[in-house]
Simulated scan of single mutants.
Amino acid sequence: MAKSMKNPPAYGVTSVDHALQLAVILQVEGPLTVSEAARRLGVARSSAHRLLSTLVYRDFAVQNADRSYRVGPVLEMAAKAQSNVSALRSAALGPLQTLVDTVDETANVTIRTGRTVRFIASIECRQALRVGNREGMVFPAHQVSGGLVMLAALSDDELTALYTHLPADATEDRPDLTELRAELRAVRRSGVAVNLERSERGVVAIGRGVTDTSGTTIAAVSVSLPSVRYSAGRVKKLVAALTVAADSVSAALDEDGRDSRH
């Protein structure tokens, strides 16, 4: 049975959703202008200005001298941690687009924080029936392919510590650790993780890890597709394309790191 479906709430307030989208953009991508905000949201400049002004009022954003906006005090600590995420996202966008062009399915990059993963980049394919953009969304790590890949990089002791010290009143889904360990052993052997409608009904995803120069898994690249287009026969091609993409992201990060040291 699918869990944690990410469907828009029936009672959603558009202005609130737009403000939250802007907060995500500021965190993930950095400063933006009123015009850029209006273009990204598909709203009038006056509406974008009001949204950004509200974020400034609540200390979620600050206006720069050049009249662009950046993250404010409320998000500043997270923004500092995002410096590495921004570099990762920049390194991933090119390989991610190549991946989409190769397999004609939506592609994503995720990072893990504790027991959750966050989509920091997502590029949709052009097919009419496709998985939508997931950028900014958060899922339990054990429910998505990228999360499974990153959990597989942990030792058994690290995995146990991660899931056995949950607060007594925690409402998050608790995985069966015995089952999870068995699944992660399979992920380690194959190097990939498959999510068959586990996080969202009708969606299948395959993920592969992105490593840094020390071989540490720091992120995951995944391909998401409608379950009606998934077949065992496609897996080999998808995994091959994912491997190229993951290696390309790692290489781009290594190159950026060398450039910053010179």
Rank of each mutant, 00 (worst) to 15 (best):
R50G: 00
L20C: 05
R58T: 09
P73R: 13
A246Y: 05
G147T: 14
R208F: 08
V28W: 03
A193C: 03
G215N: 08
Q63V: 10
T106R: 03
L177K: 03
R45C: 02
V109R: 06
L196R: 12
D212Y: 15
N195I: 04
G42I: 06
I218S: 02
R58V: 11
L88Y: 08
R45N: 10
S260L: 10
L88A: 08
V210K: 11
Q97M: 09
T178C: 05
R58K: 05
I111H: 00
L52N: 01
A182D: 04
L154V: 04
P167W: 06
L151D: 09
R118K: 12
A78P: 03
S250I: 00
V74I: 13
D176I: 07
G72K: 07
A37F: 01
R208A: 14
S53R: 10
A48V: 02
T106I: 05
A87R: 15
G146I: 13
L93N: 08
R174V: 12
E105R: 14
V138C: 05
Y69K: 06
S46N: 07
A161V: 08
A153Y: 07
A232V: 15
I218F: 02
L41P: 01
S68P: 07
L159M: 02
T54C: 03
Q63P: 00
L41W: 00
N108C: 12
S35D: 14
L180T: 01
V100L: 08
D247F: 00
V24T: 14
V194Q: 02
R134T: 10
A87T: 14
F139L: 11
I206M: 13
R181I: 01
T33C: 01
Q127Y: 03
M77F: 12
V109A: 04
R115K: 09
S155W: 07
L99Q: 04
S222D: 12
V235S: 14
R174Q: 12
Y69A: 02
M137E: 15
L151M: 03
L96R: 12
G215D: 06
